[in-house]
């Protein structure tokens, strides 16, 4: 790969996944290329951090509106990506501080490195499975139905053979136990 030697701290990219449409290894052609190459990446990262599409979209938009300026295109792809990710970290931190008064989830250095190097970002299914694995069967079922399988509370209640009110209580208790297992993990 024809990566320039100036980026000693930026290891050469691994095999590029297909969706990448970058003409040069060294720099992006224009802001549209920056956008097309990174929008899904940033969105996936934000989604993993906030857990819902509406907030993930708002925050992704904020990242690009703040970070994409016409003057930044002389930088290498690695630098532009690092800048986007640093912006994403700041945007997420500000989102949580503004809405919740504290940071609920954060973007850590490992994740920045993984995204920058095109590693598959999504260990999300594994992380969810790891939480569920540690829970008793009853907790696991309600959480799996509601969070992973998109059951409504009514449908989940039917599937579990309980009332809707019971299903709500089950879900709340199960989430509390999941939170206790998770500890301070961000």
């Amino acid at each position: 790969m024809a990566h320039s030697g100036e980026q000693a701290d930026n290891p050469p990219p691994k095999v590029r996944p297909r969706e990448l449409r970058v003409v040069s290894d060294d720099a992006y052609a224009d802001w549209r290329t920056v956008y097309e190459d990174n929008v899904d990446r940033i969105h996936r990262l934000m989604f993993a951090k906030v857990g819902n599409r509406a907030d993930a979209e708002d925050l992704t938009a904020e990242v690009f509106l703040a970070a994409l300026g016409p003057a930044r295109l002389d930088r290498s792809i690695g630098e532009v990506r690092a800048y986007l990710l640093a912006t994403a970290r700041t945007v997420l931190a500000r989102h949580w501080r503004t809405t919740m008064g504290r940071e609920i989830t954060t973007i850590d250095d490992d994740q920045i490195e993984a995204v920058r190097q095109d590693d598959p970002v999504s260990d999300a299914p594994q992380r969810a499975a790891a939480i569920l694995d540690e829970l008793p069967e009853r907790d696991r079922r309600i959480l799996s139905l509601r969070f992973l399988q998109a059951y409504s509370i009514k449908d989940a209640a039917v599937a579990l053979g309980v009332t809707v009110a019971n299903a709500k209580v089950l879900q709340h208790r199960a989430l509390r136990r999941a939170a206790q297992l998770g500890g301070g993990r961000a």
């Binding site: 299914p125 939480i131 998770g182 301070g184």
Partner: peptide, 22 residues
């Protein structure tokens, strides 16, 4: 405690298959 529950909820929801793509 509430923050920990929110984190657990986010992680579980983010684990739903194919849900993170823009």
């Amino acid at each position: 405690e509430e923050a920990a529950q929110m984190r657990a909820a986010i992680e579980l929801r983010a684990g739903r298959a194919g849900s993170g793509a823009a």
